[in-house]
Nucleic acid binder design. Structure first.
Lengths: 198, 198
DNA sequence: AGCATCCTGAAACGAGGGTTCCAAGATACG
DNA sequence: CGTATCTTGGAACCCTCGTTTCAGGATGCT
């Protein structure tokens, strides 16, 4: 029977994710991938296909390993508005400090590049947006049952608002925005949703 | 005395703006610029320098010809919240229909690419953010004096919130977001700022 | 052990990247 | 009209890009 792979594709893909996430697709050459992963071109192409396929695989893996867990925590957190606040607090922390500081969100970055012309990439973007919206909506529904929201708040519109706000936070963080500013911004948004009449 | 340029640098730069705006820097080759402008390489390099200089010049021109006028209208509009609403309405219109539909905002796009590593690009990004924030702040101040805002609203935080929201709108528009959704989102944000106690 | 099967390494490919160079053309002055 | 000065056209530069190819090595079955 055949020989077997001498490496772990998922581990290699994680390395590729970090490359594309930080530098973008266009600025990352196959040579960079080869150097970073330690694989050679043959194994790369045999396992993942060409560059575009590799990017798509990396983007999907990013969503599953980075976005999805945060969305799930948000949706399953039973606290309502505090859950949303915690979600954004964690987001800002990851974006502004630690190993991924100033990398932004790979999905958000994909919106701006030429890679969004690809139909499959576009689908990943839309799916990501939908999942984020749903997680926020779940938290807002909890908030409503707990009486944390102004009665006039439209839940769907508020969820979309917070989702779009998250995109903006991700984007600005990549340009070096002050995390304190971002926190203040999110606080203002949450306060306006929960604002009870004086 | 010398020969004189056989073309108008500003006109050419406008063409370059459209290229970089739509496709991004990385996906646009010098050959594309040559073809689109009708100039040849010699004139290009003699007038603008290399590709990075050209991109920087295009980015600055984008800010002056596309962003700044909108910011100024917003800041000088005396209506308060309706001025902010009109700003976002115009933004969504330009982003989702007409000749620039689905191009997003060139400055927002620059946040996500590798081009933001350049210090001069970063400065343009920060300046753009500052000007947007100031224009929104001016409109919000007017809104306050007109009694259109909830008394608890922090003007600075609200301006930053709306600025970040605008980034998100620009970003999502590039991925094909439904303009009706975007309008609803903006309405929710403005409503939450102006929400008077029931 | 032999063999079919797959994986690995490294070189090579053609295409296109950004940039430079120089001869030829166009201009405005003396 | 001649000349100095700049612009223009187009070819050429070298380098890196993504991709392919193929000989050699490793594996697991009979």
């Amino acid at each position: 029977m055949p020989d077997i792979k001498h490496f772990d594709p998922d581990t290699a893909l994680d390395t590729v994710v970090r490359l594309f996430w930080r530098q973008g697709v266009a600025a990352t050459g196959i040579q960079d991938v080869v150097t970073a992963t330690g694989l050679n071109r043959s194994s790369l192409y045999a396992t993942f296909g060409g560059k575009q396929d590799l990017y798509l695989a990396a983007l999907r893996r990013y969503v599953e390993t980075h976005s999805a867990p945060a969305f799930q925590s948000l949706a399953e957190d039973g606290r309502g508005l505090p859950a949303v606040a915690a979600f954004f607090a964690g987001l800002i922390e990851v974006r502004c400090s630690g190993p991924y500081a100033r990398w932004g969100c790979m999905v958000v970055n994909a919106h701006a590049g030429a890679e969004n012309g690809d139909a499959e990439v576009r689908r990943v973007l839309d799916a990501h947006h939908h999942r984020l919206r749903e997680a926020l909506l779940a938290a807002l529904r909890t908030a409503r049952t707990r009486g944390q929201l102004s009665p006039k708040t439209d839940l769907d519109a508020a969820a979309e608002l917070l989702a779009v706000l998250a995109y903006g936070v991700n984007l600005r963080s990549r340009a070096g925005a002050d995390p304190a500013d971002l926190r203040r911004t999110v606080s203002a948004a949450l306060a306006s949703l929960g604002a009870e009449p004086a």
